[in-house]
């Protein structure tokens, strides 16, 4: 299947990308690796009149550390993130989860920024960004914004990004020696998570338990008040609104969330 016709423009810098997007109007889409956008365009579920290809912007694929933070350029591919020595040392949860996205071909093309900006509640990295307390740095017509991951996702495939605003970088506070775990429950290895859990220290985030990635606040609160992991995990479905589809009912997902949070907390403790 073939995307509907569109105009393709290529940006060499962030400034050029923002300018091109502003000129093109509200429905312009940024194209990075294309692994979220192009499949939807081929099925003609998304029909943008214009794409601004940011894939060649060299300044956006860095992975570096500064001031107690790790900075990951939005164009870093899943493969780069998974293989980065810095991330494997400082943010093993992120590196591990990136290595579980899709399949190798997807990881060679797909980018961390694309995954976050696309805001698919079944995607892995948005929940990881929540668990790690990431800050998303954007560039748009009205300048630079720094947005906490917890404020970034607003609904199903929806974020606070304004038209023409580009996600440029993701900043992660260094995790320190806290334990971590990533549980991705799928039918097949390549499938999207039916339910996923990311744990970083005392922060717990859920994949595919609502229209956005979610913090499992009830679990976190229970842990904070001294509950045992199993006891805390029993509250994993509180405050969620899981979807129902071919892969499971809401009740099944809620059950999975409890089981997987329990396993994740156990694994995270074992890694402290």
């Amino acid at each position: 299947m073939i995307p509907a016709p569109f105009t393709y423009r290529r940006a060499a810098t962030v400034d050029e990308a923002v300018t091109l997007a502003a000129r093109g109007g509200e429905d312009v889409k940024f194209l990075a690796g294309g692994h979220s956008l192009l499949p939807l365009m081929k099925l003609r579920l998304v029909v943008p009149p214009e794409l601004v290809d940011i894939g060649g912007i060299g300044e956006l694929s860095h992975i570096s550390e500064a001031d107690g933070h790790v900075r990951v350029g939005a164009l870093a591919t899943h493969d780069q993130v998974a293989g980065s020595a810095l991330l494997r040392r400082e943010l093993p949860l992120l590196a591990h989860a990136a290595g579980r996205v899709g399949d190798p071909q997807v990881r060679h093309r797909g980018t961390i920024g694309g995954s976050l900006a696309h805001a698919d509640p079944a995607a892995d990295l948005p929940a990881v960004a929540l668990a790690l307390g990431a800050t998303l740095v954007t560039r748009g017509p009205s300048g630079t914004r720094e947005i906490a991951a917890g404020d970034f996702f607003t609904g199903l495939f929806e974020t606070v990004l304004e038209p023409g605003e580009l996600l440029a970088e993701i900043r992660f506070p260094k995790a320190g020696p806290s334990g971590w775990s990533f549980q991705k429950f799928t039918k097949r290895g390549i499938d999207w998570a039916i339910v996923g859990v990311a744990v970083a220290g005392d922060r717990v985030a859920l994949v595919n338990m609502g229209p956005t990635p979610l913090r499992a606040r009830a679990v976190e609160d229970a842990l904070a008040s001294g509950a045992a992991p199993d006891e805390a995990a029993a509250r994993a479905a509180e405050g969620t609104s899981a979807p129902e589809d071919l892969n499971g009912s809401r009740a099944y997902r809620e059950h999975l969330a409890r089981v997987l949070v329990g396993r994740a907390l156990g694994e995270a403790r074992s890694r402290r």
Binding site: F185, K187, I194, N247, G248, S249, Y252, H255
Partner: peptide, 8 residues
């Protein structure tokens, strides 16, 4: 025998 069916 998907996970959901087996669990059910």
């Amino acid at each position: 025998l998907t996970p959901a069916r087996v669990w059910a």
